[in-house]
Design a binder for these strands. Structure first.
Length: 425
RNA sequence: GCCCCCAUCGUCUAGUGGCCUAGGACACCACCCUUUCAAGGUGGCGGCACGGGUUCGAAUCCCGUUGGGGGUGCCA
């Protein structure tokens, strides 16, 4: 798939589409992801099937030039022969000199050199040298006629004059093959290589789609901000020279140099991502926060209490638990037990359930009366708020109590307190 | 098996021969602040994998060992 940067400054080619099955939805997902992350692009995606003739021409050049040959071995046959000769994987060159022509069931293989070495410079890893005899005869054209990734890769790169080949370390081994193909095809083409470190899981294995959480859509659904995601991703394998880690991409771009990227694998640490996300949430303008928070809660109290929630939440999907008291105290037996088992829980509720009319029902007044009550009962303020909090919101933890009570209003608050008192008795 | 890559606190990193008694961030712990929880503040815990060289001097350079990862597909 191809995507051109907005300013036309560079051409980004993303190779993710299966050349054989050619599933467009993969491309669509990727474009959605890029957009969410704020990476601009334009231009229409290009599929490999649109460029088939180019690959076939290259394959023909290779075959007629003696750089490739047809092979009718099946995977099973190769495997069986390898097993017999000592279990070494890789193609054994069985059809190398059989002079087979094209035909059904026959794949085209590259004839790798028997000697010499292939070397290249990598911005991140320095010089990499591989002896050609360690490179086996890999497939160029499948028996169904479709080109493989490697062939499409070099043809596209040379054709588009790709300047920078930046990819994961898993492609490091493929690079000598890529270069061998380039030379066999006679291309005058020399990109700059940079093989980036792999992202690994807790077991230090390469992050895989099958067993790890790698879908950006999932992080989006959980309430991670794209700003935080990009920010955190940039921190893997790299650190800003001034040490300021939480900052917008625009600020990191001028600081970033691909050659400063670390060559060793990095662990994707959800804890730090969460921290960065919390920082970004707190940096949001309140109305922006409210807008984004709306995806996660439909509470009518959101607008009124947004700044208080904004300061507490690290991931947006925590929001519901901060606002589930609006229609009545949340069901949370643990909180109830913890708060109400206090010896003087009943006494606290008795004292606080008295209405007042000599002052406005607001945070400051509630606070003042609450403090007076704590002093009167000779109990710490933090102890006193427990029963009240649970009686009104159902939970032991949550937004600051008096703001919540102010929002609830005197009538509703007192009703909840009395109800709790009855239940307690 | 073979080939390639990698190796600083638990994690992400700074460090490119003396500014290193190895710095920062996350996490963790303690204290402060405080109506809960957060946020904020202060402090703490914690690392150059090992062994040889080179050098007046090595986390930094070289070699080896060990450990980890990747590749070894008619996947990309």
């Amino acid at each position: 798939m191809l995507a051109r940067h907005e300013g036309g400054e560079f051409l980004l080619r993303i190779e993710d589409t299966d050349t054989e099955r050619n599933r467009p939805e993969l491309t669509t997902n990727m474009l959605d992801m890029l957009q969410w992350l704020g990476l601009k692009w334009d231009g229409e995606p290009t599929f490999q099937s649109d460029r088939g003739e180019l690959y076939k021409a290259a394959a023909a050049t290779l075959a007629s030039g003696g750089h490739a040959y047809y092979c009718e071995c099946t995977a099973e046959q190769v495997q069986a022969r390898n097993k017999e000769s000592g279990g070494k994987p890789g193609y054994d060159g069985f059809c190398r000199d059989r002079g087979l022509g094209p035909g059904p069931g026959r794949a085209l293989r590259f004839r790798a050199p028997d000697d010499g070495e292939t070397r290249f410079d990598d911005l991140i890893r320095g010089e990499v040298v591989v002896e050609n005899r360690n490179i086996e005869d890999f497939v160029l054209l499948r028996s169904n006629g479709n080109p493989t990734f490697l062939l499409a890769n070099i043809v596209d790169d040379a054709d588009m004059q790709i300047t920078h080949v930046l990819r994961g370390e898993e492609h490091l081994n493929g690079t000598p093959k890529y270069l061998l193909l380039r030379d066999a095809l006679g291309f005058d083409y020399q990109p700059v290589f940079a093989h980036l470190p792999l992202l690994v899981n807790e077991q230090r294995k390469k992050l895989s789609k099958r067993r790890d959480d790698v879908s950006v859509a999932d992080y989006k659904a959980r309430g991670f901000l794209p700003e935080a995601m990009v920010n955190y991703l940039a921190l893997l394998g790299w650190g800003p020279p001034d040490g300021v880690e939480v900052r917008p991409v625009e600020e990191m771009v001028p600081l970033f140099r691909i050659e400063d990227v670390s060559p060793s694998p990095a662990l994707f640490d959800i804890k730090k991502l969460t921290f960065v996300n919390g920082e970004w949430i707190r940096m949001l303008a309140v109305d922006d926060f409210v807008q984004r928070a709306r995806e996660f809660t439909d509470s009518p109290a959101l607008e009124a209490l947004a700044p208080l929630a904004q300061e507490r939440v690290k991931v947006l999907d925590e929001l519901p638990s901060y606002f589930d008291w609006v229609d009545g105290p949340a069901e949370d037996p643990k909180s109830w037990d913890k708060a109400m088992k206090l010896a003087n829980a009943g006494e606290i509720l008795d004292e606080i359930t008295v209405a007042y009319t000599d002052a406005a029902w607001n945070r400051d007044e509630l606070h003042a009366r609450f403090m007076a009550l704590a002093e009167k009962l000779g109990v710490s303020a933090s102890k006193v708020q427990g029963p009240i909090r649970v009686a009104t919101t159902g939970r032991m933890v949550g937004l600051p109590l008096f703001e919540v009570l102010e929002y609830l209003g005197q009538e509703e608050t007192l009703a909840r307190l009395r109800k709790a008192r009855t239940r307690l008795a």
